[in-house]
Simulated scan of single mutants.
Amino acid sequence: MEDSMSAPVVVAYDQTPHSKSAVAEAVREAVSRGTGLRIVHAYTTVERIPMGPFSTVLPAGNVEPTNRHDAEEILAELAAAIRADQPALAVETSAVPGEAAAAIVAQARDACLLVLGSRGRGGFTGLLLGSTSQRVLADAVCPVIVVHDTPSEPKGEILVGLDIDGPCDDLLEFAFDTAARLGTGLVAATVWTEPWAMAYAARLGDEDGLAYEQARADRLKELLDPWRGKHPDVGVVARLYAAVRSGTAGTCLVEASTNADLLIVGARSEAGHRHANRLGPVAHAALHHAHCPVAVVPSSDDR
């Protein structure tokens, strides 16, 4: 138990459909990784009573022990069901008092992966990413998979979006490892966003434009080749998009996600914010609009 929990898969659970989908994904990940599973449920220590247009917070009193007992019962029932289905899987539970995002982040400090539902209790219909998930993504130091509550038919393909002008090893390691474990193909995509004049030139057959486009393709191949060598059983397709023809990087990846089981994007911290991963426009678009679960992989420099 101790070894399997040294770097567990952690999942947040609050009985909502989104979190139930997250648990199913977390179980699959833990089994395929050969690690343990930790299920986290955050509970409140205060009680709010509506008072007309306002609300009042009652003193803790018996609220904390009552809510803790309820949380522990919820987790025990879920853990028992998982153990019955996966008897070899080491499962631990953690009922944590306080604000959900902070509790989840703290429980995932030693995790190899964190799995979240896209929305929790109180989420507005139509929003694909709830406020708790957004706050967790801002501070999580391990890769995070965000899932929806509507499962889709397996496509047999994982999609990773790469900025080939920046460091890509963390994303590629996660992408190739996931594809190898799950037995899927991998599509590595990058979006050629500048200079726009070169993209137009390539479209018109101009030699300089074509050479620049070929340089982009060569750079993508250079990044992929070492990982192809490490994972020869993973079928890899490289795709190069020109943004002036195909749209923004986020748009390209969201459209391509219709054919994927998982979309993988990166996150990097701003200087001075070591543990606050700032989601750029590509990750933001993916999390709000992708047609499949999304994995956000922080740079190892930020962990």
Score class of each variant (00 low, 15 high):
90 A>N: 03
3 D>M: 12
219 R>N: 09
7 A>T: 10
18 H>C: 12
115 V>T: 07
39 I>C: 00
99 E>G: 07
87 P>C: 11
246 S>G: 04
276 A>T: 13
43 Y>K: 11
204 L>D: 14
295 A>P: 02
157 E>C: 08
129 L>Y: 11
303 R>E: 08
202 A>P: 00
240 L>F: 05
1 M>C: 05
187 V>W: 01
199 A>G: 15
186 L>A: 07
193 T>W: 05
244 V>G: 00
131 S>Y: 12
146 V>A: 08
116 L>N: 04
85 D>T: 15
202 A>G: 13
96 V>S: 04
230 K>R: 15
87 P>M: 12
157 E>A: 10
190 T>G: 04
186 L>N: 03
64 E>D: 11
69 H>C: 04
262 L>V: 06
228 R>S: 09
293 P>Q: 10
190 T>K: 02
87 P>W: 12
121 R>I: 13
121 R>F: 10
29 E>Y: 05
181 R>A: 15
111 A>F: 00
301 D>H: 13
258 T>H: 12
164 I>V: 15
185 G>V: 01
106 A>R: 13
116 L>K: 06
232 P>G: 05
140 A>F: 06
293 P>F: 10
288 H>S: 09
147 V>A: 14
49 I>E: 12
133 S>E: 07
16 T>W: 08
77 E>L: 14
26 A>H: 06
135 R>M: 14
24 A>V: 09
75 L>Q: 03
202 A>T: 01
265 V>H: 02
52 G>Q: 09
145 I>E: 12
17 P>N: 12
69 H>Q: 13
293 P>G: 10
148 H>T: 15
172 L>P: 00
249 A>I: 05
200 Y>F: 15
101 A>I: 01
107 Q>F: 01
255 E>D: 14
66 T>H: 12
14 D>L: 09
167 P>L: 12
93 T>D: 02
2 E>C: 00
111 A>D: 01
257 S>N: 05
159 L>E: 02
243 A>K: 00
94 S>D: 14
228 R>E: 04
61 G>S: 15
263 L>T: 00
120 G>F: 03
125 T>P: 01
259 N>D: 14
